[in-house]
């Protein structure tokens, strides 16, 4: 089998800034996504790396919790953007259930509002290395 690493993305209510930059990081060659050896998937059960954007709104909380049960035990969780990391400017709102580490252990934080595609690719590279080191070998 190939060593391809599958990345699954969840948007829990982001302003789309991070999501647009994720797309730029994947689709614009200069950011080097192709060299990482990973690909995005629509199937949560395949996920090796889980990428979460958004501040985990109350409305998307059950949706996130359901997806978390479908994900494999072994995985690397990446919080992308300040929203899932701390809640950012929204943190004390009634509509926010985050941050992400209330729901799942986070392995990599990619901070920024939004982080640049370069930083996203670097963070993903870090997540891929962690995956290979922690999960894949044994």
């Amino acid at each position: 089998m190939s060593d391809m690493i599958y990345v699954y993305r969840i948007n829990t209510g982001s302003c789309n800034g991070c999501d647009v930059e994720i797309l730029a990081s994947v689709l614009v060659p200069k950011f080097g996504f192709d060299t990482l050896g990973c690909t995005y998937t629509n199937d949560p059960t395949l996920a090796n790396i889980v990428l979460v954007t958004g501040s985990i709104t109350a409305r998307s909380k059950p949706y996130l919790e359901k997806i978390l049960t479908q994900l494999p035990q072994k995985k690397i969780v990446v919080a992308l953007g300040i929203c899932p990391i701390s809640g950012g400017v929204f943190r004390d709102s009634y509509a926010i259930a985050g941050p992400l580490d209330r729901f799942v252990d986070v392995d990599v934080n990619i901070a920024g509002c939004p982080p640049s595609p370069k930083e996203i690719a670097q963070g993903l590279a870090q997540a891929c290395a962690l995956w290979r080191e922690k999960c894949h070998e044994n």
Binding site: N11, T12, G13, S14, C15, G54, S55, T57, A58, R59, S60, Y63, V89, F90, D92, S93, Y94, A95, I96
Partner: peptide, 21 residues
């Protein structure tokens, strides 16, 4: 409704300058 962050409520708790952000 997934992206509702309660912003109209948040802005009432911040001053005019903070709301710019």
């Amino acid at each position: 409704g997934f992206v509702h962050r309660g912003m109209e409520s948040i802005v009432l708790r911040r001053n005019f300058l903070q709301n710019l952000i």
